[in-house]
Computed example of a mutant assay.
Amino acid sequence: MDEKIRHIAVIGIGSGDPDQLTLEAVKAMRRTDVFFVLEKGPEKSALTRLRRNMIDEHASGAHRIVEAEDPWRDRARSEAGGYTEAVHDWRRRRADICERLIREELEPGRRGAFLVWGDPSLYDSTLAVLEDVTARGKVTFSYDVIPGISSVSALAARHRTGLNQVGRPIHITPGRRLAETVGNDDGDIVVMLDVHESFQHFATEGVWIYWGAYIGTPDEILISGPLEDVADEIRRVRAAARAEHGWIMDTYLLRLVSDEVSSAVSSAR
């Protein structure tokens, strides 16, 4: 590494279970001089503690942890139809913070790191934010990406199922776009961050759901079964969990199955 260039590692740390850290992630953490942690408020303080615990266990040598408050996102604007604009605005303000942290807290020739939940390449803004900071040209740095275990992979593993069926594709979508797939039987569907519980608008006959929340954390919840049988249970459990924790992150897999497959899976549960 050029001694005059700052370097950033974007490290995927899995969906919450400390044991999901890969050896590559651990090695990258041991090389890190400064860890950047964006706080998400008191409701999600448990996520910050998990990051700190990982750093305490795996970081080595002289290192620092620099914290900053993650900017709020205008969710009211998102709900009113301005989702894309709200996300771009949030990312721009996030880039302002990251630019300042890298410029002021990381000396040239040193290594910094962002610990990213799951995999940085799936449903995360860190890479887009760093690209924005790089394009501004106000601070020079290189960066690389260490993949992690995503909530999608962890969900399938926890339910002891594969994401794909033979010869069929997989669709990954946010919950707000699920309605667009109604009537599409070409493959299974992975749904992430479904604020509106959109699965209730999906045709239920012959559909199996594998649902999980807080995957990989001590608060993990798993429910699976025919959608028509477990949809109400998921809604009740989800509402109770959100009330208890103040937030919820959930992921689920919707699968079209034959009667024979449904019977076999039911017997195996």
Rank of each mutant, 00 (worst) to 15 (best):
R111D: 15
G14I: 05
D229K: 06
R160W: 11
F141V: 09
L38K: 05
R111L: 14
A231L: 03
G61F: 00
I146D: 07
G187L: 02
L178N: 03
R158N: 12
L163I: 09
L106A: 08
D232H: 10
E104H: 02
Y143S: 15
R136T: 08
D33W: 00
L254W: 02
L106D: 15
E260Y: 06
V257N: 09
V87C: 08
H7K: 01
V191C: 07
N164D: 15
G137L: 02
T22Y: 00
R94D: 13
E57Y: 09
S153M: 15
S60N: 08
A135I: 11
S125W: 02
H58N: 12
G41W: 00
A241G: 07
Q165F: 09
I5D: 13
L50D: 00
L115Y: 01
Y214A: 11
L23G: 09
E69V: 12
E24P: 09
V116F: 01
A86T: 11
D250H: 00
I102L: 07
H88Q: 14
D194F: 00
G41H: 03
E105H: 02
T217L: 05
T134H: 12
D250F: 00
L106F: 01
H58G: 08
R73D: 09
G162N: 12
G112F: 00
A76T: 10
E99Q: 08
Y252E: 08
M29A: 12
I149N: 09
A264C: 10
G212R: 01
I248V: 15
A213P: 13
W90F: 15
N164E: 13
V261E: 03
I65S: 05
L115R: 00
I146A: 11
I13S: 02
D132G: 09
I55Y: 03
Y143L: 07
F36E: 11
A241I: 09
V261Y: 01
R103G: 11
P120R: 04
L253S: 13
D144K: 14
T204F: 03
L130G: 06
A95K: 04
E131Y: 03
G16M: 01
R100T: 14
R51L: 04
S78A: 14
L193I: 04
M249D: 11
P108T: 13
F199K: 04
V207T: 14
A240K: 15
G41V: 07
V182L: 14
D89Y: 00
V237A: 14
L115C: 07
S125Q: 02
L106T: 10
A46I: 09
T134P: 07
I55E: 01
G167S: 10
L227D: 01
L23K: 09
I55W: 03
R111I: 15
T140L: 13
W208S: 04
R51Y: 01
I65T: 14
V265A: 08
D232L: 06
